[in-house]
Amino acid sequence: MFRKWLLIFLTTFAIGLNISYACVGKTIYIGHISSLENEIIGNILSRLITERTGTSVKLKKFSNTNALFQAAVNGEIDLFMFDSNEIKTIVQTTDFEKAKTDINTKFNLVLLKPVYETKAGYNVPIIRKDTLKKFPALPRLIEKLNGNLAPQIISELTKEVDRRGIKDIVREFLKSKNLI
């Protein structure tokens, strides 16, 4: 009997804990699927934002697209990238305008301009509305990556990772494009 009541009490206590973190400014959380290519893209976004705005960025890894998307809906992350196939799993369309409207209305997420687009599909950053409000300059900044995140470019970068590490190749990549 005692164990049961102790269990109920502790469960309530553990849920009710409100731990306050010490911060050093606003932080943006970028989510990505746990693959090397996505990690590189996440690092590119992260480095670009940190270097250009001074805002702290943290990366979070997710095992699949559903978990990544849910994390954005729940506010666990602020920004992530999806391609058109991944968007189709959420809103059953690859049409950009329709997907944009649906995702906006249903999930309070905003599709920014695609960073890469062909007839076959596109890659697009998706941001929470709340985040957009706190960082209104982000879309314009991320837009600078347009044309620079083609699959062949990312593929080249992944080949370099073993040799030089993600941070170095990302830094060099952004510098070569005069983005930082």
């Binding site: 269990l7 502790l10 206590f13 553990a14």
Partner: peptide, 20 residues
């Protein structure tokens, strides 16, 4: 098992002690 579960519940609190 109960003891392990208890520690599991309390672990977040123990690991996030307040800064002196």
């Amino acid at each position: 098992k109960f003891l392990i579960f208890l520690i599991f519940l309390l672990f977040p609190y123990l690991s996030f002690a307040q800064i002196p």
